[in-house]
Design a protein around this nucleic acid. Structure first.
Lengths: 217, 217
DNA sequence: AAGAGTTAACTTACTCAGGAGTCATATCGA
DNA sequence: TCGATATGACTCCTGAGTAAGTTAACTCTT
């Protein structure tokens, strides 16, 4: 007995038997967290494997490459964000009130898993590489909801220059991103508080907002 | 035959005799370009050495480490940007006109070397690490010029909440950054054209600007 | 029911490339 | 001859990707 292990302990290989879809979901969950918190470049496949409680080759078995894993994570994260945006879009608010409603939904969505945001807006993700052409597409889908509003604002002001509209859209998106990022950098702030902060800021610049038909006060 | 060169050819080592300050400037120039165009993580010390036309050990001899080289590049880039901002700040424009004047100066400054901007605002630069505490300080100095303006705007609107002011400042900075980034992504656009584009956008949102005392039309 | 064969899940232990950093040495002007 | 300028040729480590094998569960017989 105590002579026990001449052989080194050969633990579980293949014993766990977790079904592939479930395992993939676990890996994507861990991947989103690490990619979101540290960025693509600073995250290694081994890190993700550790965090998911499995070994590196399993990730290659299921996702093919680091890029493949990354794409799966971005798909997951952006699907979550897009569905939230489409939900709030269907609420029917217009103008700046719609922006605040969208921000409010985003804050509530991100509170339990803030890293999802930076999975999609990750500056260290490789911009080149065919798989990532795809990522730009999803960033665009997430931000698209503001495009019409900007075009309409510009049209009312008598400006239909497409480049002017595009630059304005870029500025507008950056505000949205900046407010989310500011909130992510202030972890003590509840979604409700942040939404009201956004309301105050919008009112300061744009005057009173039409909140009728929203759940906001 | 020609048993000639048993020894491999040992070419010039130490022959060039360029004085250290001049060499350092060349290396920093190349470093700014590569760090700015590809980001800190994606740039290797060997790349910089190649671009500067010298060998890797010389960089370690002069800057000690990749971090040391990076700090030197950030110092250089941010010094250039800060001096330009202080120059335009001294012109005496106020409010949004001052913002446009600052943007105008930035466009003209960056036109021949656009990469300088992204040296300072590099998302792949390591946020941790004592040397980079420093970088945040310089980003702040570059953006500080907008802080008072935001605080004053908020005060006039009767809001002195420091967190509200900070969030507004973040949003404002993001607009500035977004306009510069948009311009960098549209290489065909001259500084003059971009400045007038900015003027149109500011007018659309904030109404007519007080351009008296500026060189702008 | 008890074995035989197949497959999916999973691991250890590698290879290989690239990049940070170092060492010993070479050239040249003062 | 000494110090500054400079380099080729290393070491060493990290991280992507792979090969080969192990375990268990699920068949398919008889």
């Amino acid at each position: 007995m105590t002579s026990a292990t001449t052989r080194p302990p050969r633990p579980n290989a293949g014993t766990k038997g977790v079904a592939r879809p479930e395992r993939e979901a676990q890996i994507i969950e861990a991947g989103c967290r690490l990619f979101g918190e540290h960025g693509y470049l600073a995250t290694s496949v081994a890190d993700v494997a550790d965090a998911a409680g499995i070994s590196k080759p399993l990730i290659y078995n299921y996702f093919g490459s680091k890029d493949g894993l990354h794409v799966a994570c971005v798909k997951h994260a952006s699907a979550v964000l897009v569905s939230e945006i489409e939900r709030t879009a269907a609420l029917g608010a217009v103008g700046f009130a719609r922006a605040v409603v969208t921000l409010d939904g985003m804050f509530r969505l991100l509170e339990p898993r803030p890293w999802l945001w930076r999975v999609v807006f990750d500056a260290t993700a490789p911009r080149e590489g065919e798989a990532q052409t795809w990522l730009a597409e999803h960033e665009r889908r997430i931000m698209d909801f503001g495009r019409e509003g900007v075009a309409e604002l510009m049209h009312l002001a008598g400006n239909d220059d497409p480049l002017d509209i595009d630059a304005m859209r870029a500025a507008w998106e950056s505000i949205f991103r900046a407010l989310v990022n500011w909130w992510l950098d202030h972890p003590g702030e509840s979604p409700e508080e942040m939404t009201h902060r956004c309301l105050r800021l919008f009112r300061t610049v744009f005057g009173e907002l039409d909140l009728s038909g929203t759940a906001l006060t």
